[in-house]
């Protein structure tokens, strides 16, 4: 059976390995540079004076593009691993050799998830390592796409995408519709969780700040949910014109102080930076659980339904 898996998937395996190595080389080279630059500017205390990532535009695009790695795993591995065998009829060839369907399913699943974890884990490790300098200065690893491409969340996505591909392949018994279903359902689920659910994993922290200019946002490294201007605790909607009396105050600081005295303040709603790992694990857990459900359905269908 090991021979069968190797013979069947060796091209896929080698291409995937080549892709990961192809990504690792530029990431490694630029990442080392980036770390040196950060180290140098820290020694010279000049880090605040320039944009750390200013010369890393292209590689940054590539690093951010690793957000699609889970979909690739779902499409090229998940959707084909059982779907192609069902489509070509070779499933009935293998299932009538002296090997049980149970064992075949188990080994195919093992291969699929070992690959999904290895592939997305390797990419995520590279991206996480590369992003370290940026995390400490410019960007929040808790925010937006950075959360999705670092540490264990992307591994959860890859497991989910693989399971989704497997289940669609088993349901459709054909590769192309399974690929389309995988892409659509993966993007749909990811958007739903990211935009509608993730911020609610824990009740957010609410912080009222004064009328200071740049300091009125949420703290560094946190996941910002909203930043609103309030008047006596009520959110002010629409454009706010500074009070006529405060405009007369002169300097910007004095104007802000004047506004604060009039009852204006900023309200930040956010998830603080120390919850980052909790959120990574919750995100991973949700996608792993969804994957488990899909795998259970796929296995049930494969074992129960006629080939």
């Amino acid at each position: 059976m090991t021979w069968l898996i190797w013979r069947q998937h060796r091209v896929q395996l080698l291409l995937s390995a080549a892709a990961v190595i192809g990504l690792a080389i530029p990431v490694w080279i630029t990442g080392t540079h980036l770390a040196t630059t950060l180290h140098d500017c820290r020694t010279a205390s000049t880090c605040g004076s320039f944009d750390l990532l200013q010369h890393y535009g292209a590689i940054r695009v590539i690093v951010n593009l690793t957000i699609i790695v889970p979909v690739l795993v779902g499409v090229f591995w998940g959707a084909t691993i059982a779907g192609r065998e069902l489509e070509m009829g070779t499933a009935s060839l293998v299932w009538t050799q002296s090997i049980t369907r149970r064992r075949w399913v188990a080994i195919k699943l093992g291969t699929l998830f070992a690959f999904a974890i290895a592939c997305s884990g390797a990419v995520s490790a590279l991206v996480t390592w590369w992003s370290n300098p940026a995390n400490s200065t410019v960007e929040s690893r808790f925010d937006g796409p950075q959360f999705d491409i670092q540490n264990i969340a992307p591994v959860g996505y890859a497991i989910f995408a693989a399971a989704l591909g497997l289940a669609s392949g088993v349901a459709w018994r054909r590769v192309m519709p399974a690929v389309a279903t995988t892409i659509a359902a993966f993007i749909g689920t990811r958007l739903l969780i990211e935009l509608g659910v993730r911020t609610h994993y824990m009740s957010p922290v609410v912080r009222i700040t004064g009328m200071k200019g740049p300091g009125s946002g949420p703290p560094n490294g946190s996941l910002s949910i909203s930043t609103d201007l309030t008047l006596h605790g009520q959110v002010v909607n629409g454009p706010v014109r500074p009070l006529q009396s405060c405009v007369a105050a002169g300097s910007r600081d004095e104007m802000n102080a004047c506004m604060a005295r009039a009852g204006y303040s900023f309200r930040n709603v956010y998830q603080p930076a120390n919850r980052y790992w909790t959120f990574q694990w919750i995100e991973f857990g949700i996608f792993a659980a969804l994957a488990a459900v899909l795998v259970a359905v796929a296995v049930l269908v494969l074992r129960r339904r006629d080939a």
Partner: peptide, 20 residues
């Protein structure tokens, strides 16, 4: 779906499926 059984039979499905 058991090895003892599958070892006793040969089966050739319609359209002769093989890994092309």
């Amino acid at each position: 779906d058991a090895v003892e059984y599958l070892g006793e039979i040969g089966y050739l499905a319609q359209d002769v499926p093989l890994y092309r």
